[in-house]
Simulated assay, not measured.
Amino acid sequence: MVSQGRPTAEELAAARERTVPDVVAPGLRVLFCGINPGLWSGATGLHFARPGNRFWPALHRSGFTPRRLRPQEQLELLPYGLGITNVVARTTAKADELTAEEYRLGGAALVERVEQLRPRVLAVLGIGAYRTAFGRRKAAVGRQPEGIGATEVWVLPNPSGLNAHYTLDGIAAEFRALRESLPPQVD
């Protein structure tokens, strides 16, 4: 894996099919769940690592973090009660390389992870991924009527730079709606 800087074409090609370790702990306030790691993430071992990804700026603009963190600082999320996982673990160049079966299996594994970790909220970043993984064809962005045990489920916009349906401000507004629904964090 690349420790710093921009991955080379060879490093990106070698990143296919890799996994990126979750950033998790029991009892998180919010477990953010991406669709699957992209090649930059696979090459660097860091979540939402591609420079055009809007996760880190949206997280800050929404008030979840006091400053904009960089992917290399992902472990700093844990003291804020935040974590990161993915619906599907394997790295691809684009999410459309995943099969519906991979989404369904990933959804089942995600339910197990949530039951074990018991975050207050699971925030799935991508409406299509949520609909396919959980068989909820009519789901919309926002709080979902179905939780996982005591864990609320929210669907938020995919922060990928490829998601043209939402601007950074629009993504941050949806993240903010989730943050504002949470009770204040107790230190």
Rank of each mutant, 00 (worst) to 15 (best):
M1V: 06
V2E: 09
S3W: 14
Q4R: 15
Q4A: 15
R6D: 10
E10A: 14
E10L: 14
A14R: 08
R16C: 04
E17D: 15
E17C: 07
E17I: 05
P21A: 15
D22E: 11
V24H: 07
A25T: 04
G27M: 05
G27A: 07
G27P: 15
R29E: 00
R29L: 01
L31E: 14
L31V: 12
F32Y: 04
C33F: 13
C33I: 12
G34S: 14
I35A: 03
N36Q: 14
P37Q: 07
P37V: 03
W40A: 05
G42Q: 05
A43C: 04
T44P: 02
T44Q: 02
R54M: 09
P57M: 08
A58C: 08
A58I: 08
L59V: 05
L59R: 04
L59E: 01
H60I: 05
G63F: 01
F64L: 11
F64H: 12
F64A: 15
T65R: 08
R67W: 06
R68P: 06
R70V: 10
E73R: 06
E76N: 10
N86H: 10
N86R: 05
V88Y: 00
R90V: 03
T92I: 13
A93D: 12
A95N: 10
T99E: 02
E101A: 09
E101L: 02
Y103P: 05
R104H: 05
G106D: 04
G106P: 00
G107A: 05
G107L: 04
A108K: 14
L110S: 07
L110I: 03
E115G: 11
Q116M: 15
L117N: 08
R118K: 15
R118D: 07
P119K: 08
R120N: 14
R120A: 15
R120F: 06
L122T: 02
A123S: 10
G126W: 05
I127D: 09
G128Q: 11
Y130L: 08
R136F: 09
R137P: 13
A140I: 09
V141C: 02
R143L: 13
R143T: 02
Q144N: 09
Q144H: 08
I148T: 01
T151R: 06
E152H: 06
E152Q: 13
W154R: 03
P157R: 03
S160F: 07
L162N: 14
L162V: 15
T167A: 14
G170S: 12
A173D: 10
E174K: 13
F175C: 02
F175M: 00
A177D: 08
A177N: 09
S181P: 06
L182C: 05
P183Q: 11
D187E: 12
